[in-house]
C-alpha cells in the first residue's frame, strides 16, 4: 500500500486531519500552561503554614483526581456558563466556547496532577536543607527559589513528563463536547468515507508518534536528572 493509495490522506480529508491536529495542539498548549501555572500556585498554597490556606489546595486536588475528566469537562461546558454573569457568557459565545471551556477543564484538572508531582519533588529534598538556608537568613520564598526548587526540579521532571503524556492523550476527550480536535475530525472523516480501518490506523499512528516523542523526552529527562544528581553529589 503506497502512501498515495490511502484515500483518507487525500484532499479534503488531509486538511480536515491537519485542522484537527492543530486544534489538538492548541488545546494541549493552552491547558498545559494552565495546569503548570495553577499546579505551581496550588503547591505554594499547600506549603503555607496557615492551615486553612494549606487545606484548600489539598481538598481541590482530591476533588479533581477523584472525578472523571469527562464529567469535569461536561460540568465546565454545561454548568459553568450558567453560573457566569451575563457579559462573560456573551464573551464566551463570541469566541469558541467549547475550546475555551474544554481547555480550562483540562487545565484545572491536570493542575491537580502537576501539583502532586511538584510536591513529591519538593518532598524529596531533605528538610535540613530548608533549615540550613533559613539559618543563613534566606526568607521562605528565597529558600524555595534558590535552594529547594532547583533541586526538586530533577525529581519532578520525569513525573511532569508523565503528566504531560496524560494531558496530551486526554485532549481527545474534548470531542465529547464537540471541539473539532483530531479525534472529532477522525470520526467526521469516518462518517464521510466509511474507511474506518484506514482513518483509525492513521489517527492511531499520529497519536502514538507524539506520545512516543513525549515518552522519549521523559526518558532523556530522567537520565539527565540522574546524571546531574551524581555530578552534584561528587
Amino acid at each position: 500500500m503506497s502512501f498515495e493509495s490511502i484515500a483518507v490522506l487525500q484532499e479534503p480529508y488531509l486538511s480536515w486531519l491537519l485542522q484537527g491536529l492543530s486544534l489538538t495542539f492548541a488545546l494541549f498548549i493552552f491547558s498545559w500552561t494552565i495546569a503548570f501555572v495553577l499546579g505551581f500556585l496550588l503547591l505554594l498554597m499547600r506549603m503555607s503554614p496557615i492551615k486553612v490556606i494549606a487545606w484548600i489546595p489539598a481538598a481541590y486536588i482530591e476533588l479533581a483526581r477523584n472525578i472523571p475528566l469527562l464529567v469535569q469537562i461536561m460540568f465546565w461546558y454545561f454548568a459553568v456558563p450558567m453560573l457566569l454573569p451575563d457579559f462573560l457568557q456573551k464573551a464566551l459565545n463570541r469566541w469558541d466556547s467549547g475550546f475555551i471551556l474544554a481547555g480550562l477543564a483540562l487545565g484545572f484538572c491536570m493542575a491537580a496532577y502537576f501539583s502532586e508531582s511538584f510536591r513529591s519533588g519538593v518532598r524529596s529534598i531533605n528538610n535540613t536543607q530548608v533549615e540550613a538556608s533559613r539559618a543563613l537568613g534566606f526568607s521562605f520564598l528565597r529558600t524555595m527559589q534558590y535552594i529547594v526548587f532547583p533541586q526538586a526540579l530533577r525529581a519532578t521532571i520525569p513525573l511532569i513528563m508523565n503528566n504531560t503524556l496524560l494531558l496530551f492523550k486526554n485532549t481527545s476527550i474534548a470531542m465529547a463536547i464537540g471541539v473539532h480536535e483530531l479525534m472529532y475530525q477522525v470520526l467526521s472523516i469516518n462518517n464521510d468515507t466509511f474507511r474506518t480501518f484506514e482513518i483509525f490506523f492513521v489517527a492511531t499512528i499520529v497519536y502514538l508518534f507524539f506520545s512516543i516523542l513525549i515518552m522519549i523526552a521523559g526518558e532523556f529527562a530522567e537520565r539527565w536528572a540522574k546524571k546531574s544528581r551524581r555530578a552534584s553529589n561528587a
Binding site: K169, V186, T196, F200, T204, L208, M215
Partner: peptide, 19 residues
Amino acid sequence: VYVMRGTPFLMIIFWAHFL
C-alpha cells in the same frame, strides 16, 4: 504496553466499537 500507554483511551474505545 507502550502502544496502549501511547494511545488515547477514546481511540481504543472507537477501535473496539467499529472492529
